[in-house]
Amino acid sequence: MKQRNEQLPPGIRGFLIRMGQIDRRWIYLAVAVAIAAPMLARLRFPEVPGRMAQATFDAIESIPPGSRVLIAYDFDPASAAELEPMANAVLHHCASKGHRIALMALWPLGKQLADDAIRDILLEYHPEKVEGVDYVQLGFKTGNEGVIKLMSTSIAEAYAADASGKPITQIPLLEGVRTIGDFQLIASISAGTPGAQQWVQYGDSAMPDAFKFVAGTTGVQSSQLLPYYPKQMEGMLIAIKGAAEYEMLVTEKYPVTRSADRLALGRERMGPQFVAHLLLIGLIVLGNVSMLAARGWKGAAR
């Protein structure tokens, strides 16, 4: 094989070797262009829902309207590009289905992201929703997994009042709610620790079968969480791909007529993703071909 490699015309071999030694900053620029161009051209592809996105959708659909749903914003702006689209879609889905929604955060800035979602999604598409009756913002609570552990025995111990300072005993939505087992579904939009894994370990395991649990995760975290699906997690949305598939399912069943961009962020971001992936695959192939041209098969195997 090495002999065959050396039979390559010197020009092509030299070009391939030079391509393998290209300054990495040109690659950065190529990635930037591969992402910028489809964004500016608003390139978008149709999504086919995967098994996990469908399972998440079905979990929220399967509980009757009026059920209590707890959405944990366990992320911050650093991961918002990846997780905000799915958080928006989950919130819109729950509100459209008529569930009563409690929002909370185990990350300090998660509270502000939840506030934004209430303003931009909940009140934008569902202006009829009443605070305290249809939704409540519990806010951020320090303590990481300790908060989940505490909420599995007493929510009042963890959250004496909602984010605006109103005692939870005066909030109609939380009437009769003692622990997280009184919610029919919990969704954690998670960027790390504390997040979905801790909800499984300290919430779901403490009271299995008490509620359905679904999670939306970053790509980095997903391989760590995959073993929990489907036994300990009813559904799972993995990174922007999961968000795009889920967005499609939600907006097909519950379309919105205005400012629909906020419920299409996942699909919008899959266009640049596709082109960038093609570029990366091309670069990996090119790097390997260049290495083979320089060293031959035997040299490459070393």
Binding site: I35, E82, T218, S222, S223, R269, H277
Partner: peptide, 25 residues
């Protein structure tokens, strides 16, 4: 498994870059 995890990581990192470009543009 490691390859799949790397693929997920690449997807995540590209999304973060898309998010920043989204802000700039």
């Amino acid at each position: 498994t490691f390859g799949a995890a790397f693929g997920f990581t690449v997807m995540g990192r590209i999304t973060l870059l898309v998010g920043r470009f989204d802000f700039l543009f």
